[in-house]
Amino acid sequence: AVSDRLIGRKSVVMEAISPQNSGLVKVDGETWRATSGTVLDVGEEVSVKAIEGVKLVVEKLE
């Protein structure tokens, strides 16, 4: 599936994300709604860990 190619990809937070609120990330020039178990600020680099419905699950790059 097209979405499977996103797992493991680097992306950049475009709208802040917290455990309570989804935000936005940009992956390969496309904007996606995303969630995370931690707070992520605009501009942080993250990695796509999973896809749940139409949202990406991301975490901060170490």
Rank of each mutant, 00 (worst) to 15 (best):
A1F: 13
A1Q: 12
A1D: 11
A1P: 11
A1Y: 13
V2R: 11
V2E: 10
S3Y: 13
S3A: 13
S3T: 12
S3R: 12
S3I: 12
S3G: 11
S3C: 12
D4T: 13
D4M: 13
D4K: 14
D4Q: 14
R5I: 07
L6Q: 02
L6C: 06
L6H: 03
L6S: 01
L6N: 01
I7P: 02
I7Y: 04
I7S: 03
I7K: 05
I7F: 06
I7D: 01
G8M: 04
G8R: 05
G8T: 04
G8W: 02
G8A: 03
G8K: 04
R9M: 14
R9H: 07
R9W: 07
R9C: 10
R9T: 06
R9L: 10
K10P: 09
K10E: 06
S11M: 12
S11F: 08
S11Y: 05
V12D: 02
V12H: 05
V12N: 03
V12A: 02
V12R: 07
V13E: 01
V13T: 02
V13S: 01
M14V: 15
M14Q: 07
M14W: 09
M14G: 01
E15P: 00
E15L: 10
E15F: 07
E15H: 07
E15W: 07
E15N: 06
A16W: 11
A16E: 07
A16N: 06
A16D: 03
I17N: 01
I17V: 07
I17G: 03
S18P: 02
S18E: 04
P19L: 06
P19T: 05
P19W: 05
P19G: 06
Q20G: 14
Q20S: 12
Q20A: 10
Q20T: 13
N21Y: 12
N21V: 14
N21W: 09
N21K: 15
N21A: 12
N21C: 15
N21E: 10
S22P: 14
S22T: 13
S22W: 11
G23L: 02
G23S: 01
G23F: 04
G23R: 03
G23C: 03
L24H: 05
L24C: 09
L24N: 03
L24R: 08
V25A: 03
K26V: 13
K26E: 12
K26R: 12
V27A: 04
V27R: 00
V27W: 03
V27G: 00
V27K: 02
D28E: 08
D28R: 05
D28W: 06
D28K: 03
G29A: 06
G29H: 07
G29R: 04
E30H: 09
E30D: 08
E30Y: 10
T31E: 09
T31G: 02
T31P: 05
T31S: 08
W32G: 00
W32P: 00
W32Q: 00
W32Y: 15
W32F: 14
R33N: 08
R33Q: 14
R33L: 14
R33T: 13
A34E: 01
A34H: 01
T35P: 02
T35A: 07
T35Q: 06
T35V: 14
T35Y: 07
T35M: 10
S36C: 07
S36D: 02
S36Q: 01
G37I: 11
G37K: 13
G37T: 14
G37C: 14
G37V: 11
T38W: 10
T38Y: 11
V39T: 12
V39E: 10
V39L: 10
V39Y: 15
V39A: 11
V39N: 13
V39W: 15
L40S: 00
L40T: 02
L40H: 11
L40C: 15
D41S: 13
D41N: 13
D41Q: 13
D41Y: 14
D41R: 13
D41A: 13
D41T: 11
D41W: 12
V42M: 06
G43K: 03
E44G: 02
E44L: 08
E45H: 11
V46N: 00
V46R: 03
V46K: 00
S47E: 13
S47I: 15
S47G: 07
V48Q: 01
V48C: 03
V48I: 14
V48T: 02
V48E: 01
V48W: 03
V48A: 00
K49T: 13
A50V: 04
I51M: 07
I51G: 02
E52I: 13
E52G: 04
E52N: 11
E52R: 10
G53I: 03
G53E: 04
G53A: 04
G53F: 04
G53D: 06
G53Y: 05
V54S: 15
V54H: 14
V54Y: 14
V54K: 13
K55Q: 15
K55S: 15
K55T: 15
K55R: 13
L56M: 05
L56Y: 03
L56Q: 00
V57E: 04
V57H: 07
V58K: 01
E59Q: 09
E59V: 11
E59C: 08
E59K: 05
K60Q: 06
K60T: 05
K60M: 05
L61S: 08
L61Q: 08
L61N: 07
L61M: 10
L61F: 11
L61A: 09
L61E: 08
E62G: 11
E62F: 13
E62C: 12
E62M: 12
E62N: 11
E62I: 12
